[in-house]
Design a protein around this nucleic acid. Structure first.
Length: 339
DNA sequence: CGACTCACG
DNA sequence: ACGTACGTGAGTCGT
């Protein structure tokens, strides 16, 4: 970067000039090299982590890849997956999806994927009891579109542009992570002041969400922990630290953990229910993977619809919140098609 | 073994 | 004023 006079705009946690995707993207217009490096890195990652590793992970006795799930692997209550990690199989790029297509159903069977729709935002609606958010989910609206209509003042959700919806989606996700105006600005490529305006507008339209977040921070500082809907706690030893960076990090974790943790509780309850439902039907279908808000099955082709209705009921009824839980399902001969 | 990067929700 | 979005696992590189 020195030689080509390209300025680094991002620093690593160690204070060095970063060469990560964001940093290279920022200087890609000044020289052809950054984009070539990104392209190479993306392909090298897919090859070294997946293409060259997964075939060696096939168990010769079963002909399958078996991951390890860790029940207490993540602080929030999520499962973790390792050796190999099957919770980070690519999906976001076309080349990546070629990896996912390699996970196939045996002859005569199909893959079924079932995922919770917007589960963490639904939990935020439940916990905050915010009237606008509850209404959006109760009426089955596209919640990012509804948020965009509120924040950007569209007369109706149909008038929301794709850019407005994208910005609203970033706001919705960012809020659940305890983001700042700076973080939103960076995510959207806009000025800090503009991002701050969006956030202020959001909280004006969804006052229950702001009150909930203030409550959660206060409770964390007071009690030293936050908890999920079902009462499972995450202790936050840094929540009152004098070191501002540590303290701010703990505050963001305090905001996020009840939502991420409740979602983890709910899908685990669903898995127990699915297991019980499936037990007398074990020859017809297997629950084979969990990916945080998704369950994956293999199923006899002629049993697929029966499985779908059984699993959807288990997942939908795993918790009774102030908003409905919605489950999306898909089938395919491979995991990619099932989405 | 730590730092960095990047795959996923 | 300050740093700046949550939670993971794994590959590569340098020490």
């Amino acid at each position: 970067m020195d030689e080509l006079k390209l300025d680094a705009v991002v620093k690593t946690p160690g204070g060095q000039p970063s060469t990560n995707e964001e940093a290279l993207e920022a200087i890609a217009d000044a020289h052809p090299l950054p984009r070539l490096i990104l392209e190479y890195r993306g392909l090298a990652k897919l090859r070294s982590t997946y293409t060259e590793k997964l075939p060696g992970a096939i168990n010769p006795d079963t002909g399958r890849v078996h991951t390890s799930y860790h029940q207490a692997g993540a602080a929030t209550g999520r499962l973790a997956s390792s050796d190999p990690n099957l919770q980070n199989i690519p999906i976001r790029t076309e080349d990546g999806r070629r990896i996912r297509k390699a996970f196939i159903a045996p002859p005569g069977r199909r893959i079924m994927a079932c995922d919770y729709s917007q589960i963490e935002l639904r939990i935020m609606a439940h916990l905050s009891e915010d009237a606008g958010l509850l209404r959006a989910f109760e009426s089955g609206q596209d919640v990012h579109r509804a948020t965009a209509a509120e924040v950007f003042g569209a007369t109706s959700p149909e008038d929301v542009t794709s850019d407005q919806r994208r910005a609203a989606k970033a706001i919705n996700f960012g809020l659940m992570y305890g983001m700042s105006a700076f973080g939103l600005a960076r995510q959207l490529g806009i000025a800090r002041g503009e991002a701050q305006d969006y956030i202020a507008l959001y909280f004006a339209r969804y006052p229950g969400v702001r009150a909930y977040m203030d409550r959660t921070r206060a409770q964390a500082k007071d009690q030293g922990y936050v908890e999920t809907v079902f009462g499972r706690r995450l202790y936050l030893p840094d929540i009152n630290a004098r070191n501002q960076g540590l303290r701010a990090g703990a505050e963001r974790a305090a905001i996020n953990a009840p939502m991420q943790g409740t979602a983890a509780d709910i899908i685990k309850r669903a898995m127990v229910a699915v297991d019980a439902w499936l037990r007398p039907r074990a020859a017809r279908a297997l629950m084979i993977m969990q990916v945080h808000d998704e369950l994956v099955f293999e199923v006899d082709a002629d049993f697929a619809e029966t499985l779908r209705s059984g699993v959807v009921a288990c997942m939908r009824d795993a918790a009774a919140l102030r908003v409905p839980l919605v489950v999306d399902t898909g089938f395919g001969d491979n995991w990619d098609e099932a989405h």
